[in-house]
Design a protein around this nucleic acid. Structure first.
Lengths: 232, 232
DNA sequence: GCTTTCTATTAGAGGCGTCTAATAGATAAA
DNA sequence: TTTATCTATTAGACGCCTCTAATAGAAAGC
């Protein structure tokens, strides 16, 4: 039975692909340097790749990608580039962190997600709306955050989660808070447009249990007060 | 030396967190069902988590998250939700695929990327431009792709990569092609706004070597002709 | 041509994460 | 109370991926 193509093996393919830009074959030494592993770890990986028909490997001589191997490497690299652009250009993650993240994420991006990203960048690049949007997003990112969510006034009646009864549901409009509390709420998925449902409240009123997406949270009073929602 | 928090262990934490919504403790059986692994695999994982102080585990009795464990689980879940929203709401990946992808990606998203995503959703949700943009993107996605890139006329002089000399560089405007060729080019990172440099051309003209981001590609004539760029 | 040096491979080990099979503990039924 | 059943744990195995140490092969220096 031929082994399966694991993340590590994909990384090896990618490395070999990169190395074959310069020479037309790759050496074990170069691979081990590039991946920062010992040479002894490379040999068994090459054996497995050869067994799968992805590289043409002659021990002590050379290793080259086969056409399938090249295709596989390109598939992974395409994901890598897309992710790096998403992280770097759109989300403004610093370059080296974007690179690291892309490396980690590239192995587990489905075709559907890949297609979505491709369309996204096509849209950004092709349409005037796309370009403008990214600029606006970045401008908005740079400007200091308003203390109490005054930047965008609510255009519909808003309620604090603190005032909802168990069973009531709302769509998050904004988090009217700053600092650690705001961060904690955002981290937990309490982003604008997220659906929130109050599950139960302690008799004292203090811990309020809510559901956000799949997660269930216990909120303290200050936290619940800060969340402004539109009733659903 | 306490073990490190691996992806698998993060998954266990997440599962325990989900289970503790219903009861206030989790049983090995439930965990093994939820994660679709055998019960025998759960025990050693719990031992490691206990050793790290992330769960409170009494053999044959119960397992509960410690405060640190809960924090860790929430951290991962927050990433999970963000990714699922990005994939589902923005990129329109089908729900179950979005869920699977989010599961796989959640373990390797840096804080910086996480912050970027949070800001992104905040912007989408808070600003009128944000909402409009997503709608426009989705409308654009649904409409059939024009056969020859006629939707957006070039607003600047465009050149085919086929006509560039080695050393010349361009910014991709559009891919004037359809089907497999288009797909291959998009997959390889030849998206609008990508930087392209012609590296060398075979004497016969046929294979044209180009660089796109970090990747190097050999293009056939038909492929090179289809890529329209603005000179840089 | 012989020896040194560099490079690649093998051998053996360890951690992780899963499995199956066997065992032990707890609970329910008789 | 004793037995049957269900659940959790242990024991032992395997694959993956890495390491270190030892060895083998190739290239360079003398």
């Amino acid at each position: 039975m031929s082994p399966t193509l694991t993340s590590a093996l994909e990384d090896y393919l990618e490395t070999i692909y990169e190395l074959m830009r310069d020479r037309d074959y790759a050496r074990v030494r170069d691979i081990s340097n590039a991946r920062e592993v010992k040479a002894a770890s490379v040999t068994p990986a090459l054996k497995r790749l050869a067994e799968m028909g992805l590289v043409d490997y002659v021990q002590r001589e050379y290793v080259r990608l086969t056409p399938e191997g090249r295709r596989e490497a390109q598939r992974v690299l395409a994901r890598h580039h897309l992710l790096r652009r998403l992280l770097g250009e759109i989300l403004q993650v610093p370059p080296d962190e974007a690179e690291r993240d892309a490396c980690a994420l590239e192995h587990s991006l489905s075709n559907a997600a890949m297609d979505g990203l491709v369309r996204f960048f096509e849209f950004i690049g092709l349409s005037p709306e796309g370009e403008r949007f990214v600029d606006q997003f970045h401008a908005w990112t740079r400007q200091p955050k308003p203390e109490e969510g005054t930047l965008f006034e609510d255009t519909q009646p808003s309620h604090s989660v603190h005032d909802l009864a168990p069973g009531q549901r709302g769509r998050v409009l904004r988090i009217g808070s700053v600092g650690a509390i705001r961060q904690r709420l955002l981290d937990m998925g309490l982003l604008p447009n997220a659906e929130v449902e109050v599950e139960r409240r302690a008799p004292t009123g203090e811990p309020i249990w809510i559901r956000v997406g799949g997660a269930h949270l216990a909120l303290r009073g200050v936290e619940a007060k800060a969340i402004r929602v539109a009733l659903v």
